[in-house]
Design a protein around this nucleic acid. Sequence first.
RNA 1: GGGCGCGUAGCUCAGUGGGAGAGCGCUCGCUUCACACGCGAGAGGUCGCUGGUUCGAAACCAGCCGCGCCCACCA
Length: 862
Amino acid sequence: MPTDRLKALQERTRYDPSEVESRVFARWEEAGVFSPEPEGSVDENYSIAVPPPNVTGALHMGHALNSAIQDLLIRMARMRGRRAKWIYGTDHAGIGTQVKVEQALAAEGKTKEDLGREEFEKRVWEWRERYGGEITSQYKALGCSLDYADERFTMDDEYVKAVLHVFTSLYEKGLVYRDNYMVNWDPGTQSAISDLEVVQRQVEDTLYLIDYPLASGSGSVTVATVRPETMLADTAIAVNPADERYTRLVGEDAVLPLVGRRLPVVADEYVKTDFGTGALKITPGHDPNDFEIGRRHGLDEITVIGEDGRMSADAGERFAGLTAEEARREVVAALREDGLVSGTQPYSHDVPHSQRSGERIEPLISLQWFCDMKALAEPAIAAARDGRLRFHPEVPHTKVYLDWLENIRPWCISRQLWWGHQIPAWYRGDDVHVGAEPPGGEGWERDPDVLDTWFSSALWPFATLGWPEDTPKLRAFYPTDALVTGRDIIFLWVARMVMMGVEFTGELPFRDVPINSIIQAPDGRRMSKSLGTGIDPLEEVQAHGADALRFGLLAMSSTQDVRYSPERVKQGRDLANKLWNASRLILLGVQEGAEPSPDRAETVEDRWILSRLDRVTARVDELVGSFELSAAALELYDFFWSELCDWYLELVKPRLYDEGSDRTGVSATLLFALDRVLRLLHPLMPHVTEEVWSYMPGPPESLLAVSKWPEAGGSRVDEQAEAAVGRVIAAVTELRRYREEAGAKPSAILPARLAAGGYEYTSSHVARLARLELAGPDSDGAAAVAEVPVPGGAVELLAGGEFDPAEADRRIAERRDQLGEEIARLEGKLANERFVERAPAAVVDGERAKLDEYRQELARLG
RNA sequence: GGGCGCGUAGCUCAGUGGGAGAGCGCUCGCUUCACACGCGAGAGGUCGCUGGUUCGAAACCAGCCGCGCCCACCA
């Protein structure tokens, strides 16, 4: 090693991620390891399409976890020698982006209308130019190995082509159509929104009981409503056909108060007899249920509330121009004047609100584009049923996904926004043309609406690869392998990608769908800026390093939502530092010119660590294969820290440091163990491992990121070595505990004699780590003043040590009691005929073996 | 209204039919030649409650009590 490198290793006693991470990242980028050539078959390649973040957004903790998982999978695939492409890009995010730009305009005192559509769109593109790069630098700060060189955007020219193609094609198949239908109108964004963008919120309303006089003059019908203002658009009254209170009224007319319109009384099963008054005012223009009833009975559809949320001219002179809320007060006042309000009661119920603007949804009949999902859903259902599409964990996501698809309803895909994919439909009078270009002739006007952002997102895994062109990228990387996301967008995004993928490419866009935890604030609330509960991942990176955050997030996450736990990130920071220092010990301690090798094992501890390494490798493969990533992270942590550092490194120190000892074998084994640990940890903590790698023997330009993932062959598993070192660990732990309790000074070396079997090759380890001076076999005469039970026998402490031998009696008595209890328990169990008969033989044998072991130990203790 | 999940150490969470685990925190002791972001040794749990299934339950089933999420068109 060059002297300056050596010096750096010696002096850097603490790992400093802020110094290392950007430097290491630059090496990866320069080497181009993130950008695979579009060659080879899909089977030999590996790809994941990142859930595209909002182009002008900022990464939050959810992104950090989500990308830690994807990067782990991608890096592991890359190390397995596959061309690994992590498809990168951003989403134009219609409403979100438009609102941001509108806010910026508002700061200048302008509205988008002041600019006009064309100028406004230009502003959005400028905004994207200015802020679009931030998200990229944030991913880089996390160490994500995305293919940045091939960045895509859902409004790119090529992407636009894909969207137009899909829309046109679905239109030609009759799956996309335009219809006058009841939609969720969001007065906040002044747009229709889909069912999925609606949230139910509990609202305290007043239920008004209103009398509608009968046209015959013989009394009245009382209806209950929380929205009296919509009565202005009533076109009927409905009752349940089985409701005897009202059967005589069916077919009669009532008279709509304030308006005077005659309303037929109709019978419909929908009406509940036990709710309200059992008579329901029907307002097809402003209530989804009434809309359905209206269509069943051929009722008129009257609209009195406009898209601006105000009462329209059809509401009548007295109310036109008022907001719905104002109109409600006015209508009630007017009814009261006429003595038609026969009662009110407080009423608490769930009311739809816009997820985006937070405003109460105004159901309106509106001319919109819809996508019929029934046919598209069929193959998406089949794929999950027969296991070609797998959620991880399977339960409950598969069922939730299936339930939704099986009850799928038409998707309202048009949005009254300016920012997005403008709908490729052209109108001239009653003529409609769908296509990228208007047909020949004068007077064609393009539909001003844009598509729901999720419509374009649904094409993400293939539109990013050049579809509908048959590109090399598409052939090399589609279908992708996994799609990693949170459960909150399984319907919005995942299901729709599956449907569109199958429809347009004939293949599932991905096979595995690992669903990651949703990270909550430490107090259990949602992490959100507005609540002030957000924790910025970049701040955590700055404070503790990207590797620390990645480890922490993976360690704390599971299949459940989790509260963010800063301690786990510190655990990751500590792990990086520990790795750095263990590496220093090894790299500075091994013989000059030594190379990593598993074939130079000399001692039982060498064979032990190689055996453990083999097992942990297999275990990690297994856990990652089933997407149990937090278990994999903790498995590696535990192996590295407890077994490699706490035991192996301590066991081999004499061979490294003692004067005149031969360091050949231990050097090769140590370097091999470090080499393997670096590879195993790399997908999890890429920076620190790459940095250490640069100090390993070998060509200086070599990159860990493209080195080979370890094979878990199992050929180095060594039961005997594991048993022997297992005894050392147990014995040393026992002896250390005894020393503490007996008050022996930590630095004191106690004279002792080993009276136990199974330590042929390890007694010196026990002696050193427990700080004993072991007497030779010719010391039989020396008096034992205390006896410490260890596996295979005991260690006798001899006279002359500075400790309290009386403690030994207590220890032995305690151990005897313990053994007595265990033996009694096992004897009882084995005396139980039903247990012996019915329990699996292996379990019974295991219990017998334990009993034997305990009996022997008890016998040895006298 | 329907569905799903959770309740395990002070905190955050693993475990899911055969002797209760991790990280942090806490106590005690260590300036031991990689690391005090460290080393060693400890304390701490009726695994929400009640029944049931089983030779055996923290784990499986039922009910109950708390908490949370998703879906849903009762005015």
